[in-house]
Design a protein around this nucleic acid. Structure first.
Lengths: 182, 182
DNA sequence: ATCCGCATGTAACAGGTTACATGATTCA
DNA sequence: TGAATCATGTAACCTGTTACATGCGGAT
């Protein structure tokens, strides 16, 4: 269901779009929370059309099909968001590595954590720059800028999460290091 | 690979264990970062034995097989942790919902966020209580307490992440609410 | 004796990734 | 005219979930 809901969300926020467009939108936004390639998105859109959640309103060059969300599609999305008790399961290789950390020699764990801290720190800086650019634009209403309307809260969450990862890695490295010396 | 590495990690930290044991260990620890049921774990252990990463050292009652990690298994785990550039992909329904939030009416989004804040707040409290219990025990070295040695850093990360989610949900709800009024 | 927990497995399905395959349009 | 990008699709494979299936051992 998650993929389906993600696509309905993108169609709601960005308006009618092709599978190709949606694949790129996916990559540049929802990808932080969920992943899917075009090879999964195209068949899913066909199924969604068969289920009446989207319609093909327009066929363009190169067989391009432009999908539009239907009333039923919007209802499904809303129902999924509001009606369902949310699963808070997370699959994260980064968190898994946290569990596996104690299987390493302390000095190796420290090295690993320092690298991670750097990676997440870089990610944090990138996301913060992105937010800066967005809030700077604030006055210039660009209705075509999907990510501006779409990703505001998600971006904020992403920033907080990146910060947590980098702080955790840095502080844990320091803690292990000091316990080596003692 | 992730499941395989998780199992090698559990075998390293807890010592020899059966598939049944590992399934339960999985549920009570790594489950926060990765999920797998016994129906996936049993076949994987058989494959790992075929690949020489674990051996069955002992067969007990009810067909119980006790798996022990081999040198090669330990090497594989270490290599995976240190040698590989880590993927930081995350699949999280919670984060996905953050992206879909703007598709709701503001008052609906606020209600959803308040519920989430509560759920993550409760989770945070539970994890913090768990940490408390652990640090209280500090003097009492219980070598059988796997989670004590295994999950220290992971638990700390989990606490930080739960805190971020609940704070984000609460603050975002407040922000949307104030923007409704204006 | 009966029930619960231990203990292992398989099969069918759902969800996702990688690789293969094809062809149209645009721009330089 | 050649390269890049647009645009869609399928097939094989891997990973994970749900459901089915079976039986032993210990406790009351």
């Amino acid at each position: 269901m998650s993929l389906r809901m993600a696509l309905l969300g993108l169609l709601t926020s960005s308006g009618p779009a092709s599978g190709y467009d949606l694949t790129k939108l996916f990559e540049s936004s929802i990808n932080h929370a969920w992943q899917a390639k075009h090879s999964q998105i195209y068949p899913e859109l066909n199924k969604m059309a068969a289920d009446g959640l989207v319609t093909v309103e327009e066929e363009g060059p190169r067989g391009r099909k432009t999908y539009t969300i239907t009333g039923e599609g919007a209802r499904e999305l809303r129902e999924w968001l509001i009606g369902k008790t949310p699963s808070r399961l997370v699959r994260s290789e980064g968190a898994l590595r946290a569990f596996l950390l104690p299987t390493l020699e302390p000095h190796e764990a420290v090295a690993l954590l320092r690298t991670e801290a750097e990676v997440y720190g870089a990610r944090l800086a990138k996301l913060e720059a992105l937010r800066e650019r967005k809030t700077a634009h604030h006055g210039a209403q660009d209705p075509a800028d999907v990510s501006a309307r779409f990703g505001k809260y998600a971006l904020d969450l992403g920033i907080r999460q990146a910060r947590v990862m980098s702080e955790w890695a840095e502080e844990t490295a320091a803690e292990i290091e000091s316990s080596i010396r003692s």
